[in-house]
Each structure stands twice: as structure tokens, then as C-alpha cells.
Simulated scan of single mutants.
Amino acid sequence: MNTETKRVALVTGGSGGIGRAVVERLVADGFAVAVHYAGNKEAAETLANSITAAGGQAIVVGGDVADEGAMIAAFEATEEALGGIDVVVNTAGIMILGSIVDFDLVDLDRMHRTNIRGTFVVSQQAARRVRAGGAIINVSTTVTKTQFPGYGAYVASKAAVEGMTLILARELRGKDITVNAVAPGPTATPLFMNGKDDQTVAQLSKAAPLERLGQPQDIAESVAFLAGPGRWINGKTIYSNGGLA
């Protein structure tokens, strides 16, 4: 297989949820993919092995996205194994809910370390390494617009993601690299389902005009567009939410 001409993507948080759907969608588009994991190496290896068995090309890289050394190593491993990097999709993130007045500041720091520092570290490495004609895609949330109670700390982290993403797009002027964010609405992933009762999930599933929860594949379609044909979209947040906001 010619790795010099094949486009290469690194997907952080690629072992489950939206990240897994993104990996599978990019592979379908002909990408070689580095599947990143933070804690679930087995899931990442299972996904990569299934891609390889089907004739695709995938490797596994690990590490804390907020750890600069770990991310340098992950980027270098991807470049060495696959020949370079054209697209970086940063789906890695955590969500802890609670009212601002009662929120545990330890949880705040933990979430912001992954969501803000992690996005910054990955974006920094991507800005240094992505080849011309490539794309950097981060993940925000539609709740920056819907402003649901209980999401204050999470939204604070994702508003920061949007801010740094849109500025990086302008800082990379002349590099032929697009930088965008995708902001999912309620999406049927373990991250979303955790801690929600059936009534809450049912209410949220009816919130969008299309009257269903998003599926990880829906978000992956938006990512694939930005990673491929959507070259004239740059410095934007794309709300992938079925019309919720």
C-alpha cells in the first residue's frame, strides 16, 4: 500500500462513541487512521484490527491528550507508521454535569484539563505537523447555544475549545489547513447517557425538530465533510444537532 499518497488521519478518543464512528467513516473514505485511546487500549486495538482485517490501514496510539510528551509521541508514531498526517480529529473529552453553585472544583479542574488543555496540546501539535491541504477538527457542544442548566462547567470548557479553534484557523493563514469545530447536539453515546434517567433521555430525544437523538454516525458525517470536500469552510463551528439550535 502506498502510504505516500494515502491520506492519513489521527483521531483522539477514537476507541469509542463519536470517535469510533469518525474512525470508521474516515476509513470508508479511504483514510489510513491512527486510533488514539487514553484508557481503553483493548477497544482501540479491536477497532484497528477489524479495519486491518477488512483491508484498511490502522494503527493504535495512546496517551493523555493533556500530556505534551505523550501527544508528541503519538503524532510521531503516526507519522512514522503511516507516512504523515493530513487530518486530526480531536474527539477526546469528558463531561461532568452539575450546577455551578454546587460544582466540585476538583471535577472542574479534571474536566478542563482534558477538554481545554488537551484540545490545546493536540491542536498545537496538529498545527505543527498537518500537511498542506489538511484539516484540524475539534469537538464542542450545542449546549453553548441551548444553555441547559447543569452544563455550566462543561460548556465553559467547550466554549474555550471553540475560541481556540477559530483563532487557530486564522493563525494558520497561508498554510492551506482548515480548522473547524463540530458541535453535536444530544447524541446516543455512553458519555451522553451516563447519569441520565429514561425521562430525561426521552425529553432530549424530542428536543430537535427531527425528534430523535443524534447517532455517532451523524456527527461522523459532519466531520468527514470537513476532513474531505468541505475545503471552503474554515474557522467555523458546525452545529450538528438536527435543528435543535
Rank of each mutant, 00 (worst) to 15 (best):
G243N: 10
T52C: 00
A9V: 09
A132K: 10
S205W: 02
A77M: 10
N234P: 08
D176M: 13
V101Q: 14
G243D: 11
L82N: 03
V61K: 02
V106P: 06
E24Q: 13
E24H: 07
P184Q: 04
F75L: 10
V122N: 06
R113W: 09
A156F: 02
A156M: 12
V161I: 14
A34D: 01
N115L: 12
L168C: 10
K145M: 13
L10V: 05
M164A: 11
T178C: 07
E45W: 00
V121T: 08
A220I: 08
V33N: 02
I100P: 09
V201Q: 01
V155D: 06
M193E: 04
A159S: 14
R170K: 15
M95F: 15
V23N: 03
R110H: 13
R7V: 04
T146Q: 05
N180Y: 03
K236Y: 10
A245Y: 11
L226R: 12
S99G: 14
E42V: 14
M71G: 05
A44R: 01
A81V: 03
A202W: 00
T78S: 02
T12C: 10
Q57V: 14
L213R: 00
G30W: 02
A245D: 14
D29M: 01
E24M: 09
L213I: 04
V61N: 02
T52N: 06
A181I: 07
G83H: 05
S50L: 02
G163W: 07
Y154H: 06
R129D: 04
T114H: 04
A54F: 00
N40L: 06
T52G: 01
V182C: 04
F120Y: 15
G163A: 15
A227Q: 08
L97Y: 11
L97E: 13
V60N: 01
R129A: 08
F225N: 12
N234I: 12
G69I: 12
A34Q: 05
D104G: 13
G93V: 06
F192R: 02
